[in-house]
Design a binder for these strands. Sequence first.
DNA 1: CTATTTAGTCAGAATCACTGACTACATTGG
DNA 2: CCAATGTAGTCAGTGATTCTGACTAAATAG
Lengths: 150, 150
Amino acid sequence: MSRENGAQISLGTLLFIAQRAFEEEIVANLHAQGFEFSLSQGRLAARIAENGSRLTDLASAAGITKQSAGYLVSQLEAAGLVQRQDDPQDARAQLITLTELGRRAQLAARQAESAIEAAWQEHLGEESIAMLRRQLEALRPLVDRHQPRN
Amino acid sequence: MSRENGAQISLGTLLFIAQRAFEEEIVANLHAQGFEFSLSQGRLAARIAENGSRLTDLASAAGITKQSAGYLVSQLEAAGLVQRQDDPQDARAQLITLTELGRRAQLAARQAESAIEAAWQEHLGEESIAMLRRQLEALRPLVDRHQPRN
DNA sequence: CTATTTAGTCAGAATCACTGACTACATTGG
DNA sequence: CCAATGTAGTCAGTGATTCTGACTAAATAG
């Protein structure tokens, strides 16, 4: 993990730089639109499925403990972005779903993402970004133990 | 910020998955070798230049405040991985350098990185990983403006 | 039916990040 | 030279996020 050794920057560092830039840009964009949430809350909310997600699944997808996920969901709930519902399938479980406000936030986030991708395409070319996406998608099954069933 | 049926997976999420997997693998690998440090400490240590780095520069490179960087450096120092030295050029400044132990950790980290890259190449092909690296490198100047904070 | 697993909570603590205020040294312009 | 301003780093206080461990309740396997 070193920087600047014969111009070989670690792949991990490169991923880190791109990832953080992407994430911070979205948060800044949504904040500017009046949506209030933290980075961690956003990471969790980004993983809520259309039809609702269980807390444990969210935790697993986000790579945090279910305790941490519960803490973040409570905050998102207080902010009016998500709601907890009983899972009709399993009385132990909850379904975390987006509220109307949450859905608006999600839409705004998608637009922000598209804007970032467009900006990146403008500098690197459409082909490069498509390729970047393709490599990362190919990497995912190797690396992401939690595959969402969608 | 979405992950459902028709839509693509967000580029941000893809970056997140790859980045976190890479990082966690390295930390796990080094822990298994007996090196003890946290993710945040590792992120900072990874940015220490061969000839030493200033605290403020490390903070900027890692995207945290110098106060936070100072906190992490103190921990790395206590763990015997880095040391603070006076900067002969500037009496206000320190040079954070790796100790012998720190250098061994850095070497181990580099080997862990190589192993991950090799594993990725095995699944995606050498060409794909080289391309991934190239796109990320091209992205960097767009995205990494090292904005100093506080 | 009992034993085990799974979903989620509560309580407590550690880590890591922030802001604000401060000291000490450096640099610059008159 | 020296006053003004800028930069490097620290101290103090706080907030956010995450963890571990212990727990309840429901589901499931034998």
